[in-house]
Design a protein around this nucleic acid. Structure first.
Lengths: 216, 216
DNA sequence: TAGATTGTTAATCGATTAACAATC
DNA sequence: TAGATTGTTAATCGATTAACAATC
């Protein structure tokens, strides 16, 4: 059932279902139950069912969901059927890795160009243009770009964000390890490696401690 | 106050405080209040105070927390004072970008080496060795590595994870866009770009829709 | 002292889980 | 029909926020 407001927690789980469904072998049965999905992904089946209910117009008892239809529903809900144009600022190692990643098409994301204070080449290996950062605000406006990907060093990230917003951008994917101050209505999605590392680090600390205590 | 069990939500916010505190200019006052921190990061002050209470042994009314001490407390809590050795599997673009990223030292993370099915060179630009993946399990054991970073394509990720676990690894940082099945006690931290993209995409969909409706 | 700021206790909110009725 | 599976309604859990007392 469409149109419902979907919470962020649900939203964040949807890509997981989608990836699993899309990676299923061609010769799999056309239907899949929430139970099967839950088991495959190590989740609770009630949660999966509730999540799917938010985006799909329902499975059938005893049979489950139609795989293809479910994929379409999730993709549509996530907006992967419309392509979004984006630009990337900071053509360093990480920036180039992102430009090179071909998988973004699947998510309807199209990186038009990269910008850098000091472009070392005029095109990426994939043939996407790299411009001087001075051309960025103009580019945003003429191409009506709505999304900016920030891969510059932390100290320049806020300035870049300000320029992006001035250029009319509505969503920022921030890979720089700093908090960005933005006006209301602009979404900043912070790709937080530090957060992941913290989770990993604390887990390992606990592991090591435990090991020591068992040895005693 | 140490020793308390800290929830994952709190844990995930700690790196944000840490980064902000560490980036403050040298000549800032030696104390900082939870209120000031909250404002700077756009968070609720009660939340910040509660979070800090989990790792620090307290600030002083009217004065706040000692910045240096607070930094130490958070770093200690997150285990950034002990270095963790890690290896990386998949020396592609993303893998190389991660190897090149110098900032990991700050988090106590030390990537010893990279492994690849087909290493195109024997060292990264930074001089870290790249070995054939066949040498990986042995390496894990001899160096007592506890953490593996997976940057291989999705289809190989599970096999790599299995090998890592066989090699004695306890935590996996997974950049491949697939769910990994692992035994209990092994932590998988999924670096989920797809999740971030979903959040961004849904926000933009809403933006576009809104814009259209205003024009009507 | 007065006021800023702390930490704690209670209230609210949201999300997850459990129980159950509906249906193919 | 029986059983798998769905969707919904109620109960639980955890995390955030609000209110307040403590303190320098």
């Amino acid at each position: 059932m469409e149109g419902k407001k979907v919470s962020k927690s649900v939203l964040k789980r949807l890509p997981g279902y989608l990836a699993y469904l899309k990676n299923m072998p061609e010769n799999s049965p056309p239907n899949i139950s929430a139970t099967a999905l839950a088991n495959a992904l190590g989740m609770g089946e009630v949660q999966v069912r509730k999540d799917l209910a938010m985006v799909s117009d329902g499975g059938r008892p005893k049979i489950g969901y139609q795989r293809e239809a479910l994929i379409d529903d999730i993709e549509q809900f996530l907006g992967y059927d419309n392509t979004t144009d984006a630009i990337l600022i900071g053509a360093g190692k990480l920036g180039q890795a992102l430009m090179a990643y071909s998988g973004f098409d699947e998510y309807g994301l199209n990186i038009l160009a990269a910008f850098d204070v000091n472009p070392k080449m005029s095109k990426t290996e994939e043939g996407k243009p790299i411009y001087s950062i001075t051309k960025m605000p103009q580019f945003c406006r003429t191409h009506k770009v709505l999304m900016g990907i920030i891969t510059v060093p932390a100290e320049n990230a806020q300035a870049v964000a300000d320029q992006l917003i001035a250029g009319g951008i509505k969503a920022i994917w921030n890979f720089a390890p700093v908090h960005l101050d933005v006006p209301a209505g602009i979404l900043v999605q912070h790709e937080n490696m530090a957060t992941s590392l913290a989770v990993l680090s604390v887990h390992l600390q606990a592991q090591i401690k435990e090991e020591k205590e068992t040895k005693k």
